[in-house]
Design a binder for these strands. Structure first.
Length: 275
DNA sequence: CATTGGACCTGACCGC
DNA sequence: TGCGGTCAGGTCCAAT
């Protein structure tokens, strides 16, 4: 589920539900979650801490505590649920109990998700390599120009690289490239300034649209309150292989770039000449 | 250096 | 029903 719009949707819900609460108990049910930090130490670092706020950096969720920060990355299948402390589900990996319900449950079928309990000063070690926030002032077409210079990688790969811009994943990369009419295999150093400007705007538009629809959910529920997002009904190309392009009605194609499914219209998104 | 391919996990779905 | 293959919203790390 989780790209920037989905994580942002969760963040906004957490802000209204857990800010001001104090952690009474932390329970790690899957030691893999803490990446080698002993479970007891992880839990100890959270207990007694008050939630001061909830931030987001790219696809990372940052739960600001009195003098620590809990960082969550949902990877492919992670979910955050707000439910009673004792309502443990099959794939629950972490539960934070507060002074009253609901508790925060981190549920993750595939077990790729991670959690860190850090001092603020250790945050850069986890999120220090991220590119600019696409919805912040630091991002515009020059960001892409600088990241793309002297490189030949496919633009789709470059957008998925979190050092380029933080938070874009497979769905919103495909959607943005469609909006900007850029072929996903276009080598980044051959994209015109005109197209780069279109792409920067398309990235912002795609992400903002996702947020406005509370994220994209394909099969299971998604937001922390268990309601599905609605953006899947607004996707133009992603997972629409064979269906008509919204612009020209020719069938959407699916190819694989960097081992990721990629969806595009071969008529509207022309390969640069000579590439 | 930059880039690529495999690894990490589990479950759903499809064709035989 | 069972089996094997494919696919899934992400990232890291070794090999090239």
């Amino acid at each position: 589920m989780p790209e920037l719009p989905e994580v942002e949707t969760i963040r906004r819900e957490l802000v209204s539900y857990i800010v001001g609460r104090t952690v009474r108990r932390a329970t790690v049910l899957d030691p893999k979650l803490t990446l080698g930090l002993p479970v007891q130490e992880f839990e100890f670092r959270l207990i007694g801490q008050r939630v001061e706020g909830v931030d987001r950096r790219g696809k990372y969720l940052l739960v600001r505590l009195s003098d620590r920060v809990l960082v969550l990355h949902l990877m492919m299948s992670g979910r955050v649920h707000l439910r009673p402390a004792d309502a443990i589900q099959p794939h629950t990996r972490l539960v934070l109990d507060f002074d009253r319900d609901p508790a925060l449950h981190f549920v993750d079928v595939r077990r790729f998700g991670r959690a860190w309990a850090l001092d603020e000063s250790d945050l850069p070690a986890v999120i220090g390599n991220l590119g600019p926030e696409p919805l912040g002032d630091a991002f515009d077409w020059r960001t892409l120009r600088d990241a793309f210079s002297d490189r030949q990688v496919a633009v789709k790969s470059a957008l998925l690289d979190q050092r380029t811009v933080a938070g874009v994943g497979n769905i919103y990369a495909d959607e943005a490239l469609f909006s900007a009419r850029i072929h996903p295999e276009a080598p980044v150093d051959r994209i015109s300034t005109y197209k780069l400007k279109a792409l920067a705007k398309a990235v912002v538009k795609a992400l903002e649209s996702g947020i406005a629809n509370h994220g994209t959910s394909f099969s299971t529920f998604e937001t922390s309150r268990g309601t599905p997002g609605g953006h899947q009904d607004h996707l133009q190309v992603f997972r629409r292989t064979g269906q008509p392009c919204p612009r020209c009605a020719r069938p959407i194609r699916r190819i694989v770039i960097a081992q990721r499914s990629t969806h595009y219209c071969s008529f509207c998104q022309r390969r640069p000449r000579g590439a």
